[in-house]
Amino acid sequence: MGCVQTYKRVHNGPRMTVHPNNRSAAPGSVSSRLDVHFELNGSPVDLTVEASDVVCDVLRDQLDLTGTKFGCRIGVCGLCTVLLDGMPASSCLLLAPMLEGRRLTTIEGLGSDGRLDPVQAAFAEEQGFQCGICTPGQILAARALLAHEPDPDEPRIRDWMTGNLCRCTGYASIVRSIRSAANRLAESGGPERSA
């Protein structure tokens, strides 16, 4: 596995430059720093990024959204899971410019004002986590599953959640949490498909 230095990228301070008058890069244009416009947790975002920035770094270092964790940085561990147009994606394998025009959901986009999302509430009640570092990714992956399939059985849950690694729980309580979330969502009239 790569050397340790590659695991922590150093940035030259926050870059939150907003370019309200420069709505989109012209097709075919070339630049190493470029503007990207996307929807983040329901709000439009305009950012200037480096072409080689990966989304998990932009979220954490430029946008101070540290709910998205990172671990392996090679798309295997699932800690940095985000939802891209509602589907789980590894944000360590997404270049920031690829977000142009897309809809991104991070763990900060779930729930509101002290009210937990039903999936979050189910994880809390069923003890679907211990140390918590994998939990944002687990919850987002679970939420996408329930948006597509409101009533998954255990094999389907385990298949979908493959690759969201947890070194604490042994997964049983995660599966239980997702089943419980499915029931909660069914009672409350189904999952919001907008996640």
Binding site: A25, P27, G28, S29, V30, S31, S32, L34, E50, A51, S52, L95, P97, E100
Partner: peptide, 18 residues
């Protein structure tokens, strides 16, 4: 070394950039 990012609008754009 800087990395330039080209958003191709058409297949022709992409081939020209390549």
């Amino acid at each position: 070394m800087s990395l330039d990012y080209i958003r191709a609008g058409t297949t022709e754009d992409a081939i020209a950039a390549l």
